[in-house]
Amino acid sequence: MDFTLLMFRVLASAALVCGILVILCRNAVHSALFLVGVFISVAGIYVVVGAEFLAVVQVLVYAGGILVLFLFVIMLVGKDAMVGKRRMRLLATVGTILIILFGLLMAQQLNVAGEGGTTGPDADSTRLGNIERVGLALFQDYILPFEVASVLLLVAMVGAIVLAREAY
């Protein structure tokens, strides 16, 4: 078994275990911390497949930005505001079972699929650096979605202000 595959298996199972713990934990803060585990494992997978830039962005944006926001919300709302405990446990159990079933299904499908249609990295990947290629994709091939995304973010910001400001 080569090193890449081994690393992938380790990181993927770490992500899975953390993911299951996110929904099984009673304490919302613990859930949030396990979520960091998920994000970092996924970032590790990115490094393994050679997408270092994505890995760094993953850690910065998700583990750094989004998670801190989650923790703030948990702090402000307080964990008492969560759903009743019994119901919570039921939901978590159902969720776990579904996740395991889905995982099994995916694993089986992947075995069936084998190497069929997946595409390997293109020839450019060895010539250009990681960040250069992300930049080229973003500002040449996908420039239009990139620009539309700026409208999307503006709408989100305007919306947040509209909903949060005092009513006239």
């Binding site: 996908y142 239009l144 979605p145 539309v148 995304a149 409208v151 999307l152 709408v155 989100a156 305007v158 919306g159 509209v162 909903l163």
Partner: peptide, 29 residues
């Protein structure tokens, strides 16, 4: 409406998705 227009003109799933989200977020608000 701008989001919808990009959605229906998109022949690429990424552009389609960005248009869809522009529409959705506006309508949530």
């Amino acid at each position: 409406v701008v989001g919808m227009m990009f959605m229906v003109s998109a022949r690429d799933l990424i552009l389609l998705f960005v248009g869809l989200e522009t529409m959705s977020i506006s309508t949530y608000i």
